[in-house]
Design a protein around this nucleic acid. Sequence first.
DNA 1: GTCTATAGAACGATAGAC
DNA 2: GTCTATCGTTCTATAGAC
Lengths: 215, 215
Amino acid sequence: MARQGPSKREAIVEAAKALLWERGYEATSPRDVLARSGAGQGSLYHHFPGKREVAAAALAEMAAEEIGAVDALFGAPAPPLARVRAYLTREREALRGCRLARLANEAAMEEPALRAPVAAYVGRIQAALRGCLEEARAAGTLAATVEPGSLAALLIAAVEGGYVLARVHWDPGAMRAALDGAVQVLDAVSRPEGAAPPSRPPAPARGSASGSGPA
Amino acid sequence: MARQGPSKREAIVEAAKALLWERGYEATSPRDVLARSGAGQGSLYHHFPGKREVAAAALAEMAAEEIGAVDALFGAPAPPLARVRAYLTREREALRGCRLARLANEAAMEEPALRAPVAAYVGRIQAALRGCLEEARAAGTLAATVEPGSLAALLIAAVEGGYVLARVHWDPGAMRAALDGAVQVLDAVSRPEGAAPPSRPPAPARGSASGSGPA
DNA sequence: GTCTATAGAACGATAGAC
DNA sequence: GTCTATCGTTCTATAGAC
């Protein structure tokens, strides 16, 4: 059940992966998939019950690929905040949108089988970011003002929102600006890495949230 | 050419507004619009060349409405950073997605007539945020570590990305977490408003970033 | 396992009566 | 200006030969 040449099934899933990124779920028809894959009608419905299951298989593969890439990035031997910066400044094709989260606003997201791989992907990134930020906090390189979990949520939102801005303005620079802001803000709440670990608390300065806002 | 009772044209545009938010552009058919509006086929094609122009009219109205709302919010008589916080913590129906930017990943965004209202909406918000942040900077309540323009881009991206996260995790809390991070970060780079304007540099306390970051 | 042929419904748009 | 009727195409899916 494994050793086989490149079957039509694989060709169909590959085509679906490309088309889901290019056009999304609703705008991709089984005919499009077949045309690009070179397979006939019957092959698709032999291997899959229907369009939804093809998309689910394609999304699962895409999520696995992208999760592998981000795991490699976050597994790099660098200080935690450097890994966060590396993720934020990673090269991206802003106008193409996020390969997985571009489906966020389609009705397909109400189907668990389609939403799950997308959620797993962004969830994994957010968890990795949070891990780095907690590590930095423990090392004393992240200010105590900001909760690592909240900052991680902000950063993944900045990336996904950056894609949205780029598409809406049809300008990759719109995404760059947002991620620029993210890096600046990250720098503003951090201290140089590689410095001596803080045996004493972060100094009297630096308002914990209780002292800064009107709240 | 104005004084008329509620025409079918208006009913069609109203229906399109609702459906574009609910389902997006591709997934909304002229028949759906007609069914919801109570109009017949001919009415739509009498008033508009086709589906695209109906959507353009609907998006223009939606953008005007939403821009009016955000202008009211940002025009409120409050300190600049309070206005920014008010925008960030505004009530939102996270799972419905952004009324306009939900279309970001549709092929329709490649058509200027459809992209323009969406871009105008997010552009207006970003400009308002930037204005507030520049004002705060001038008043000395915003740290010099962060450029107002970059921070504004980050914040609008956080909101739009927050919608994406909520949809992808099917959990409004995902958006709340991102915006929580945004507020925390904003507090971290700001000093209390209402305090005396800074005739001297930000004081050693209350991190203006000079005391806190590597910058 | 792969193919061609085709079904039944919905798509965006048009025709033409009133 | 509004309506019903219908066009030709594409949609997702099935049938059935090879």
